[in-house]
Simulated assay, not measured.
Amino acid sequence: MVRIIDVAKRANVSTATVSRVLSSPHTVREETMGRVLEAIKDLDYHPNILARQLRTLESKTVIVVVPDISNPFFSKVLRGIEYVAAANGYQVLLKDTTNDLELESGYVDLLRQKKADGMIFLTVMNSELVNIVENQYPVVLACEYIEGSSIPTVSIDNISAARKATEYLIQLGHRQIASISGPTTSVLGQDRLKGFYQALAQYDVTVDPVLIQEGDFTYESGFNVMNKLLALNQLPTGVFAANDEMALGAIKAIKSKHLRVPDDISVIGFDNIKFSTICEPELTTIAQPAFEIGNKAMDLLFKLMKNKKIIRSQYILEDKLIIRNSCVKKV
């Protein structure tokens, strides 16, 4: 088996220099680093990661807990996380809770077992557990927040964004507006519904409570809830869905009843996932800076893991209304 001392001899450097090339290459002269990397390649040397972890008490791994990996929105957030992680020599371990509280608690135990140096949550179910862990380990929350918590968070203002989406429908002349919300047990579901109500109040629009229906952020729930709305005597002329997947499900349901989007019913979504530009018609939606959210979350976690000072604990990034073809002026 090739050892680090063999690489050092081949490159005519010390073993400490080889270690620096592997862990902190920016501290090594370019010419020296070239010799070491060439020796590593020639000898096919593979460093003993476990031994290095035992010496430094670092796993060089971070865990990202996702509520539903099938949701395409999270892929861009993950890219942002991995970009910063890789630049700092860390690997990302992805854990999908499938919205299961027990799984979330089990993944937190991985921190206690020293199998990771820090954790990023992309939404949280058990806020009490996370608040306890935050006092013991580096933890960051992305995409939402926990009321009254000091955990560093990165997100958009979901209330303001939902208000903006609903306001757009109102400005197009719609007054019979339905809402397909996310789960009202979740912060995102609550905040986006708040924004919807705020827009209605601002423009003195009264909506029948039967038009306010709860989904679960999945395509299937958007389809099923929209079918319930289509069974009403008076149909909505506009629909605000709290994410794009539910909006796409709603469009499918509308078309299945031989109605047209947007001529008969306008639909607006939230998240700006890739499918929003592929569907017909292309979906008007709220765009989140998903990559930047992941990027900033990992940057904050890295600072926590290195005991660096964080200037502020909450970062609100800017969202944007993307106008496409799924909404028209009410005639």
Results as ranks from 00 to 15, higher is better:
Ser150His: 13
Ser150Thr: 14
Val154Leu: 11
Ile156Leu: 06
Ile159Lys: 13
Ala162Phe: 01
Ala162Met: 06
Arg163His: 15
Arg163Ile: 06
Thr166Ser: 05
Leu169Ala: 08
Leu169Lys: 06
Ile170Lys: 07
Leu172Arg: 07
Gly173Asp: 10
Gln176Gly: 01
Gln176Phe: 05
Ile177Cys: 12
Ile177Leu: 14
Ile177His: 07
Ser179Met: 08
Gly182Pro: 01
Pro183Ile: 09
Pro183Val: 07
Thr184Ala: 10
Thr185Ser: 11
Ser186Val: 02
Val187Thr: 15
Val187Trp: 02
Leu188Lys: 01
Leu188Arg: 01
Gly189Val: 08
Gly189Tyr: 05
Gln190Val: 12
Gln190Phe: 12
Gln190Ser: 10
Gly195Phe: 08
Gly195His: 10
Phe196Met: 02
Phe196Ile: 01
Gln198His: 09
Gln198Asp: 13
Asp204Met: 09
Thr206Lys: 13
Asp208Asn: 15
Pro209Arg: 14
Leu211Thr: 05
Ile212Lys: 12
Gln213Glu: 13
Asp216Ile: 02
Tyr219Gln: 02
Glu220Leu: 12
Ser221Val: 04
Phe223Gly: 00
Asn224Ile: 13
Asn224Trp: 04
Met226Pro: 09
Asn227Arg: 06
Asn227Ile: 01
Lys228Trp: 06
Lys228Gln: 15
Ala231Met: 09
Gln234Arg: 14
Pro236Arg: 07
Val239Pro: 00
Phe240Thr: 01
Ala241Ser: 11
Ala241Leu: 03
Asn243Met: 00
Asn243Leu: 01
Asp244Ile: 00
Glu245Asn: 04
Glu245Lys: 00
Met246Ile: 08
Ala250Val: 12
Ala253Gln: 08
Ile254Asp: 08
Lys255Cys: 09
Lys255Asn: 14
Leu259Glu: 09
Val261Met: 09
Val261Ser: 08
Ile265Phe: 06
Ile265Arg: 04
Ile265Tyr: 04
Ile265Asn: 05
Ile265Leu: 06
Val267Phe: 08
Val267Ile: 15
Ile268Lys: 02
Ile268Trp: 03
Gly269Trp: 07
Ile273Leu: 05
Lys274His: 12
Ile278Met: 15
Ile278Pro: 00
Cys279Gly: 04
Glu280Arg: 05
Glu280Lys: 05
Glu282Thr: 15
Leu283Ser: 05
